[in-house]
Amino acid sequence: MKTLLKCHIGIGKKVQGEVLSANDNFSARYDLDRLKGIFSRPQHKLVGKSYVDKILVLNESKGGVASAWMLYEMCARKMAPKAILFNKANTILAQGASLANLTICDRFIDGDITSLLSSGQRVTVDPMNGLVSIL
């Protein structure tokens, strides 16, 4: 199994943490109870799980523009993931991560990141070099 995964250059600082992974999509507005720090959308594969301080690994970002402000607000309250890894990010999540200085990466050359990483694994995310190391 590969322990070093390559992706496009991302945004934010180098972080280390525990993976929370699902083959599902993401919107801060549609899917989260941001006050409690959990996934709240009943149909979401991570419903009821806390995303706070996790390395969140999901397929794509979806839905509306609100997530951009919401990421900033979540980070300011320290109720945010440490990083988000997508197969493909949309513009909103990249813009929100830029304002919030939240670590975000996407476009992994090794394949589907939601298959390559499992919940509970520990990883280091290095967005400036486009690398994720499995510890």
Binding site: Y72, E73, S98
Partner: peptide
Amino acid sequence: VGNFFDAKNFVSVSNVHMMIDPESVGIDG
């Protein structure tokens, strides 16, 4: 953001529409 999406340069825009509701923005926003 431009670097994240491999933008080569900027393009001028004529006008802007901004989403800025208070629930999303919050006190920190």
